[in-house]
Design a protein around this nucleic acid. Structure first.
Lengths: 161, 161
DNA sequence: TTAGTTAGTCCAAAAACTGGACTTATTGAT
DNA sequence: ATCAATAAGTCCAGTTTTTGGACTAACTAA
């Protein structure tokens, strides 16, 4: 299957993977959330090859996740900023960071600390139900195919077995 | 930079990307959360090449995200189950699904619906602060390098500018 | 006996990624 | 005026990864 075809599948994770699913994209976006905007900074920090970085930035721009914007002219220089669609990836990056912190931190703790300004605590955000407000226990969430949806999702998961 | 070296970086997203950062892994895991366990089922549903699927499953097993377990002998047949470390990826998959639902659904809505058993609603989980319980606004979260942490993270993001 | 099932392996071709040199247009220092 | 530095890329040839499809092993059911 060609790569872009994956997006035709009836699955939101598959469609998201068309944009995000490679070695570098999530790391690039993570840096964007830290305020890094320039090609040189990204390249230096991530040690990604210039060719690959160029391709990734173009792809993210094409998918409207980043916006390429001139911050000076003569010579023209560009920076990359998260669009609203890009900012909406915050929960993904944030939960990925939680997972990495849990399983790949060294003894001294996570390399990046996040502080919730509203309450002052260092936090690792958690998933909650937007309706009842309770923290989500995955076993309390059942998944089912939308009745009229086409595609392969015959198997879906019920609540805890 | 070689691929596994990325894990040496002082960044939890980079380390997570060593395991998750490719075209297929997140989609495979998404299927695992739907209860798909077998090689053939994954291959048929995802249309991933058998070689790549084999490699991914081996990698996920090596990183202790999936467990390979015989469900019969003569001939031996194996299934793949999420470990605790794998189940801890639920928030990542879930938020990725939210994002895909928002930006890549067709008019009829998301292909997979999730219902919170505790309260009965169809939901898209949101991020909350584990301390104060409020929904997370990314602009209310500042990131900073742990003071003694080595590595490149000179740039960190403050709260909304 | 034949076909089907399942979890893979093997191969050659195609696609993606790599490091490093190079380009262009400018500013600041000597 | 000359030289070095900066920034955002492009270009290239070599390496690594991914692909589709055929094949295998060890059974079971008809």
């Amino acid at each position: 299957m060609q790569w872009e075809e994956l997006g035709a599948q009836q699955c939101s994770v598959a469609r998201s993977s068309v944009v995000l699913g490679d070695r570098w994209t999530l790391v690039i976006l993570s840096d964007c959330f830290l305020g890094v905007r320039r090609f040189e900074d990204l390249q230096t920090r991530l040690q990604v090859s210039r060719t690959t970085l160029t391709q990734r930035l173009k792809k993210l721009e094409a998918h409207n996740v980043l916006e390429r914007r001139a911050y000076q002219s003569n010579p023209a220089r560009y920076e990359y900023r998260l669009t609203e669609k890009g900012r909406d990836l915050y929960p993904v990056i944030s939960t990925l960071l939680n997972w990495g912190d849990k399983y790949y931190s060294d003894a001294a703790g996570p390399p990046i600390l996040r502080q919730h300004q509203s309450c002052g605590h260092d936090i690792q955000p958690i998933l909650c139900c937007p309706d009842c407000g309770e923290p989500i226990d995955p076993r309390q969430v059942s998944a089912r195919k939308r009745p009229d949806a086409p595609g392969f999702a015959e198997v879906t998961r019920g609540p805890a077995r």
